[in-house]
Each structure stands twice: as C-alpha cells, then as structure tokens.
C-alpha cells in the first residue's frame, strides 16, 4: 500500500489529536476545578447532600408524630399525621409512620396497606443502608400477616378483600427479599 499526501496528513492529524487528548486528560482535568464542576464530578456529593437533607427534613416535619408515638400516644400521633397530610399528602414517610403506628395498635391489614403505599413511593424504607430504613418492623408485619391473613384467606377462599390484603403482604415480602426493582 502506498501512502500519499492525504494519508500522511490524516496520520499526522491523528497523532496530534490523540497526543492532545492524552495531555488534556493527564495534565488538565484533575487540576481544573471549573472543568471538574462542568463535567459533574461533584454530582455524587450533591446527590448525597440532597438525600441527607431530605432525610433530615422528613425527621423534622414528622418529629412531633414520632415524639407522640414514643410517648405511647398512638391515636394522638395518627391525628397529627392527618394534620400533616394537609400539607404533605402522598409523602412516603407519612405512610410508613402510619403503618408503624397502626401495627403497634394491632390493626394489621391497614398497617400493611400503608407500608405498601409508602414503599411503592420510596423503596428506601426496606434498604439496609438507608437512614430511613424500617426493614425490621416491616418484616415483623409481614411475618404476622403471613400467619394471620394466610389463615383467614385459607378459611375464606372467596373473600376478595382478604385476598387483596394477603397480596399486600406478598408485595412487602417480595420487596424485603430484594432482587431487581
């Protein structure tokens, strides 16, 4: 194969461009804070900050409910949740808290339904590593649900509502088991 002026020019250009790129990557990028920001290097940290801020915000907003719950005033806590719902309707944290309180009150079916609503909005509550995790308590509800609702479903195979409640338990069980989302 003969190399004419066209080939030689392209080869030279290729060598120059590759060399420039290598220089840019090795020397330019790490020290250039502007380029770093532009290429989104700090995005991960920003995301973590936003997440931590969200967790802190939720804990602040729902703090009074948690406090009432700790004091054993379950009904008062539920009513406070209802009030917060006026401003933060559809927030997963509210559903999870409601599920926890209802479960403590022994209202299993509604507790499970509330956990389902919360988890469908935000799966963090069954993550081991999340500061919001309520995995152990949700697992307790599932264990209880499989026993009591399972028995109720077997005794009433035609009852659609019991079947729906059991499906909710299975959903939670599946989320707790992990796997892809």
């Amino acid at each position: 194969m003969r190399w004419d002026w066209h080939d030689r020019l392209h080869l030279l250009g290729l060598v120059v461009v590759v060399a420039a790129m290598a220089w840019l990557l090795l020397a330019g990028a790490p020290g250039d804070s502007g380029a770093r920001q532009a290429s989104g290097i700090e995005r991960a940290m920003e995301r973590e900050l936003a997440y931590q801020a969200r967790a802190a915000f939720l804990q602040q907003i729902y703090g009074p409910v948690e406090e009432l719950r700790r004091q054993g005033q379950a009904q008062q806590a539920l009513l406070m949740l209802e009030q917060l719902n006026r401003n933060y309707a559809g927030e997963a944290h509210g559903y999870i808290l409601k599920g926890l309180i209802l479960h403590e009150q022994g209202v299993l079916e509604e507790a499970v339904a509330s956990f389902v609503q919360g988890l469908r909005l935000n799966g963090d509550y069954v993550d081991q590593r999340s500061p919001l995790s309520e995995r152990a308590r949700i697992q307790n509800a599932v264990d209880e649900g499989l026993t009591t609702l399972g028995a109720r479903a077997r005794a009433n195979p035609d009852n659609l509502s019991v079947a729906a409640a059991l499906r909710n338990v299975y959903y939670l069980q599946s989320r707790l088991a992990g796997g892809c989302e």
């Binding site: 290429s39 995005r43 991960a44 999340s130």
Partner: peptide
Amino acid sequence: QPGFILASTRGSAAQ
C-alpha cells in the same frame, strides 16, 4: 469512576 458516572447508594443498583 469519573464523577459524571452515577452510582446508586441505595436500591438494587447499590447491591
């Protein structure tokens, strides 16, 4: 692992 490559810290992708 350049910064513009995202990595979940929770959820199934964090596993």
